[in-house]
């Protein structure tokens, strides 16, 4: 049968769900071991954070798509959690091989790392379902078009999980490396997110990038850091 957008989306969704059937809703034995090897075990914090963010995500999804869709939001979130655990385990395996260490206490107790990884996983799920596809010319301008298509598109997820674009950016490349089964379209989608951050979002007022640039300049040439407006 001829390929249609709907058929292509169905195939991508089935593929994603298929890839995640063996990944559970809880950390795998291997991932649990990484958690237990930490100086400070992050397990409880991870579970608590997922519970809170799951509620926020499904409610915001319902607000954006329709009140009857809160359940759908939970389903998307659960798929995102499976991907989050799967990619985290792959990242840690690769870091263990690279650094020859098994104690990742600092990384695994870093809230920003977990939030970025979860946000990226959720963005992949949303993009697979066609709910984050830059329908309004590469950016969510708000208003116009089908709300399902525009209201939850990137960078919607950053606002939902209260994450800066700069921190989201950090995780993208390692995410793509750690999850080789991502489709070409999803990789392209993440690349578009990356470009949006680099070209616009990371340069908005309040971005941590300005403070980092300032710190970088201190001690060296005392150049004036550009303001967001310029």
């Amino acid at each position: 049968p001829p390929q249609t957008p709907v058929r292509a989306a169905m195939t991508s969704i089935q593929q994603l769900r298929g890839d995640l059937t063996s990944s559970g809703d809880q950390p795998s034995t291997n991932l649990a071991t990484y958690f237990k090897n930490c100086t400070v075990d992050p397990t409880q914090d991870v579970l608590k954070r997922l519970e809170t963010l799951g509620q926020t995500f499904s409610q915001r999804f319902g607000q954006a798509v329709g009140p009857r869709c809160v359940v759908l939001g939970w389903q998307r979130f659960k798929l995102g959690v499976r991907l989050y655990y799967k990619v985290m385990e792959a990242m840690l395996k690769s870091e263990e091989k690279r650094l020859s260490v098994q104690n990742f206490s600092k990384l695994l107790n870093d809230v920003t790392f977990h939030t970025s990884l979860l946000a990226c996983s959720l963005e992949v799920v949303m993009a697979t379902y066609g709910e984050s596809s830059f329908k309004t010319g590469g950016y969510n301008h708000g208003g116009g078009g089908d709300p399902v298509e525009t209201d939850v598109c990137f960078p919607w997820i950053l606002d939902v999980v209260s994450l800066t674009a700069f921190d989201f950016y950090k995780v993208i490349e390692s995410f793509i490396k750690a999850e080789p089964t991502l489709s070409k379209d999803i990789v392209k989608h993440l690349e578009t997110c990356e470009n949006l951050i680099m070209e616009r979002i990371a340069w908005r007022t309040g971005s941590p990038l300005f403070e980092l640039l300032k710190q970088e300049h201190e001690g060296g040439a005392a150049e004036q850091v550009e303001t967001p407006a310029s």
Partner: peptide, 21 residues
């Protein structure tokens, strides 16, 4: 199978990006 350009060097990983080595 995709055209993504990987920019991180072999000695860089997620630990360094979150300042945890």
């Amino acid at each position: 199978s995709h055209d993504y350009h990987f920019g991180l060097e072999d000695h860089e990983g997620i630990s360094e990006l979150f300042d945890c080595d």
